[in-house]
Structures are given as C-alpha cells and as structure tokens.
C-alpha cells in the first residue's frame, strides 16, 4: 500500500465510522423516552442536586463514576425512600461508622434527590445490575417460615445474618440474645420508632399478624 492510499483509507474510513456513530446516536436519542419514565420537575431538580454535591465523586450511577461507595442505579428498589432520605440527610445518625459525610442537604433537596433516584431505578438498563446468581445458595433447604419471610420481605437488604446481607441496620446474627422477647419484635416491626427512638427502620405494619409472629419467632432463635 502506498502512503497516500493509507492516508486516504484512514481519513475516509474514519469519516464513515463517525457517520455511522451519528446515525446510531440519532436513533438512540429517539428511543430513550420509551425506556424511562417521564422526567418531572422534581426529577430534574434532583439531578441538579446530585451534581451540586458531586455525589458521583464517591458513588457510581448506571455503574459509572467512583468506586468508593455503592451504586445508586436501582437503590430505591431494595430500600424505601423514607429510609434513604433519612440516611442521606445525616448518615452518621443511622450508622455511626458511615463513610458518607454529612453534606448539609436541605429537606427539599433530599426529597428531590429521592425523586431522581426513583427515576433512575425505573430506567430500562438491559437487566443491569444482574441478580447475584450464586445468592440462592444462602437459603438453606430447611429454612422455617420466619426465615423465608425474612428474605421475601428483603430484610437482608439492611441486615446481616451470619455474614450475609446489608449493613444499613445492625447485624442480627445474635439478636435473639439481645432481644429475647417475641412481643418486642412484633411491636418493633409494626412501628420501629415507638420502640427505638429515631429509628430509621421502615415499618412493616402491612404484614399480617401471622407473618409478624413467624418473623419474631425466627428472630429469637438467633442466639
């Protein structure tokens, strides 16, 4: 190949690739609205708050950003916004050893952020993040009714038992020794705040009495 031929191949080949990219970009832009909910004024304001506090300097969102803190893409799927709002306004009130600082968010800003994070949680991301394929191993086959409910209602999003689960709330591996009373657990699940002042745990009032009883039974077996 002569130098001139190589040069022309480079220039025109690149221009062609760029044109294809632009065509795909136009097509993508046309399809994005069907893949996400409507962007309300709160969502837009929330996005601005996200930028203002440089949340991406610690967190990822859609998997992009910094790797110092958990991904935010689907965060409202596993944890209620009531809890998350409380957390971001004052992380260390809920988790004293939290690595997230108090940023000084106002109540309004936190509400808008929740609208924003709820919006990203509903975007069609081609199935990302994937469900952990090895996680099913954690349910042992002899699990009792209470343990099944514990995972069905995703208490594990916030609580660890035996090293598995979230860290937003206390480790429950030995909670049966700490709170051996069934009634305490039922009352706490119905209305955490009346039992533990300023509790950030969501209420599970919508569960049936039977379900609450079964979960409480499971709790007190954790010695």
């Amino acid at each position: 190949m002569s130098n001139n031929a190589a040069k022309h191949l480079f220039i025109w080949g690149s221009v062609l690739c760029f044109v294809i990219l632009i065509v795909l970009t136009v097509d993508t832009m046309g399809k994005l609205d069907q893949r996400a909910p409507e962007i309300t004024a709160e969502v837009d304001e929330g996005k601005k708050v996200w930028h203002k506090y440089d949340c991406i300097g610690c967190h990822t969102i859609f998997g992009n950003g910094s790797y110092f803190a958990p991904d935010m893409t689907k965060v409202t799927v596993r944890k209620p916004t009531g809890y998350l709002k409380k957390f971001i306004m004052n992380p260390r009130a809920i988790k004293p050893d939290s690595a997230m600082p108090v940023l000084g968010l106002t109540d309004k800003e936190a509400d808008n952020l929740m609208a924003f994070l709820d919006w990203t949680s509903k975007v069609d991301t081609n199935g990302w993040p994937p469900a952990p394929i090895l996680a099913s191993a954690r349910m042992d086959k002899t699990a009792g009714a209470g343990q099944v409910l514990f995972y069905r209602y995703d208490c594990a999003a916030c609580h660890e038992i035996g090293g598995m689960g979230g860290v937003a709330g206390p480790d429950l591996t030995h909670v049966g020794s700490k709170h051996p009373d069934m009634e305490w657990h039922i009352r706490h699940l119905r209305s955490p705040e009346t039992v533990v002042p300023d509790s950030a745990m969501p209420s599970f009032d919508h569960l049936t009495d039977q379900e609450l009883k079964e979960i409480a039974e499971y709790m007190i077996t954790l010695k």
Partner: peptide, 19 residues
C-alpha cells in the same frame, strides 16, 4: 478510529440505551 469510534458502544450496555 475504525475500532474506537464504534467501540464507544462498550459504555452503552447498561445506561438505559437500546440493546
């Protein structure tokens, strides 16, 4: 450029863009 321009697609897997 032949590989890199459209290689941009490796960042468009999971951000809400088409399959």
């Amino acid at each position: 450029l032949f590989t890199g321009i459209l290689g941009l697609g490796h960042h468009y897997y999971w951000i809400g863009t088409p399959g």
